[in-house]
Design a protein around this nucleic acid. Structure first.
Lengths: 161, 161
DNA sequence: TATTGTTATACTCTATAACTATA
DNA sequence: TATAGTTATAGAGTATAACAATA
């Protein structure tokens, strides 16, 4: 049986952390949306491209849907629009003709690289304000929080752990 | 002119932080969507309700749109659906009959309270794993990151700073 | 029969532009 | 004329269910 003692300091910290974490989550998504809009992408499209860029050999629609936390019916539309713009390719799998192999095109690879370069540049501006120790501490705490968050999602199988 | 020295440790930390922060931002939004779906709400609806719950006297459509980082044309539809379900109220402002006063109904207040209770309970389970010092450190670092993120958004005027 | 992926349908959100009512 | 808010329209994502092709 876990310790149910009421710790007023814990309660007060959690209230603050809840508020900041919620605002940060919403603001980050918003900033991401603005950042990638400059490249003509939506957030779900970018999530799919990120998953594909971690899988050089490509992914099936089901793998992509799992990795993006989307239904495969939704994935179809997202990939349709990326194929139209020649950002990804759709190929039949000769071994199992039911399944498809989705992969980044050359211009898709270039696009995602550009976006990630821009993101790294921005993050570097922020994190050079912190000491090496603080950066490690932040990484450790964020990773812990990420793990508990992922544990609460169904089927969250990152393609690259 | 800022220090442009290449610090390999900084670069490596930023790569890790960028990856974790991105995943966390996406996973948090996803978890929020699942959590509030149980209450029949969408994320944009929840964002609007949160802004309203911090403004007991209500907000105009423009204030609500600013606080939610939405266009007022978008806000109209979001509020339409919340009014239909009697979660918020729309009242003409007698002083300036062009503007509206949007506020939570009693059942809306109850709904947002239920959701926030559930979120606090979940966050408490996570953060009781950390020491008081670690919680404070996390709050400090997240706040710093939130501030730089908000600074990059246009017109991000939180109703409650 | 089971699996992979798509199509059909309905709803929500987002963005732009045109519009109404009020100031 | 300017401001507050809505409507019209188009496109994108989300969820459910029914479906085709392949295994």
């Amino acid at each position: 049986m876990p310790d149910q003692t009421i710790d007023p300091e814990l309660i007060s910290d959690v209230l603050s952390l809840q508020r900041v974490a919620m605002q940060l989550s919403l603001a980050s998504r918003r900033r991401l949306a603005i950042e990638i809009e400059g490249f003509g992408l939506t957030v779900p499209q970018f999530i799919a491209l990120r998953a594909l860029s971690n899988a050089p050999e490509g992914l099936t629609m089901s793998e992509l849907a799992d990795a993006s936390q989307q239904l495969s019916a939704t994935m179809t539309g997202i990939i349709d629009r990326l194929v139209e713009r020649n950002i990804v390719q759709r190929q039949r799998n000769p071994d199992d003709r039911r399944s498809l192999r989705i992969s980044l095109s050359e211009s898709g690879k270039h696009l995602i690289q550009q976006i990630e370069d821009q993101q790294i540049k921005r993050m570097t501006r922020v994190f050079r304000l912190l000491s090496a120790f603080e950066r490690k501490e932040m990484l450790r705490l964020l990773t812990l929080y990420l793990e508990t968050t992922l544990a609460e999602l169904p089927e969250s199988q990152p393609v690259h752990p």
